[in-house]
Design a protein around this nucleic acid. Structure first.
Lengths: 152, 152
DNA sequence: ATGAGTGCAAAGGCTTTGCATTAGG
DNA sequence: CCTAATGCAAAGCCTTTGCACTCAT
């Protein structure tokens, strides 16, 4: 819900708390990163973040993204294979997946019907258990062509 | 089916054909790469490939992997986020997914029950269609801890 | 005050590229 | 034969790190 003031405020408090929990401060740069990621409907690359926050040094972006990741506020997304992309941790947003365009690399968030997620989780849980694997979560991407690329 | 002679032979012919189709030669280095990938039960990193084929220069590995990818024989796998991993294109193997250990980065191949795959594809198809997205395939990873890491 | 955070610039590490040589068809 | 492929080394590019300065608590 980008732009929702109450939600943004709560996100802010959550961020401060989780950072404090890992012995980190909630600085303006970090708040800015959280804000930028929260305002986006898709995972952002470093260039995109730098574009959104002109003047913030790359090193600060990298360093703080790492800190935010360790605090469980941000997660790295494996996209096509070009650049690292970042989004808010899933428990701060909604469980969702990514639609990745193989032509232009565009990444868009998508959600699946809850029933599908449930049956999928059940199946994955069985497979993981059979392999002695401790399943934490799943990652599902739709790979194909976005509207623009399919047409052009 | 690693090690199956007949299958290896057919793979060889397929590789030669697809390379020729894109105007590339099937050289010994490329054959070696296909062989190494075919013999593995999980996606390989460049270091692993170099280990399996001592003496092959890195530049050749990178360059030929790119060619093989363009010929539709090999595909890059998005793993945790450390190194690029490569495996044979899916139509040369079996439809499968990856179990990724967040602790050690290990990637293992896993397959899901056909019924699960079918219902998943059906759902994804609907979602994609609703977004004007031309779905080519899906990518599903089980993320968690492998047996070794969960215990240690 | 006082250690964490910041910014700039330099260093790292995986990956790509230039060029002369070798080999595939 | 003639062009593509190879191999070595150098260059690229995203990312990380060192260090002195500044800000948060």
């Amino acid at each position: 819900m980008p732009g929702n003031l109450a939600a943004v405020d709560e996100l802010d408090r959550t961020a401060a708390t989780r950072l404090r929990d890992v012995g980190q401060r909630y600085t303006s740069n970090r708040a800015a990163l959280v804000e930028v990621l929260a305002a986006s409907s898709h995972p952002l690359t470093i260039p995109e973040i730098l574009e959104a926050r002109r003047g913030m040094p790359q090193s600060s972006v990298y360093r703080n993204l790492t800190v935010l990741e360790e605090a469980g506020l941000v997660q790295r997304v494996a996209s096509s294979d070009e650049w690292a992309r970042f989004e808010l941790a899933e428990d701060l947003t909604e469980h969702h997946h990514h639609q990745i365009c193989t032509s232009c690399g565009q990444v868009r968030d998508v959600t699946l019907p809850p029933a599908v997620e449930r049956s999928l989780d059940a199946s994955l849980g069985k497979v993981a258990a059979a392999n002695g694997f401790k399943l934490q979560h799943h990652r599902l991407d739709l790979v194909g062509l976005c509207g623009d690329c399919a047409t052009g």
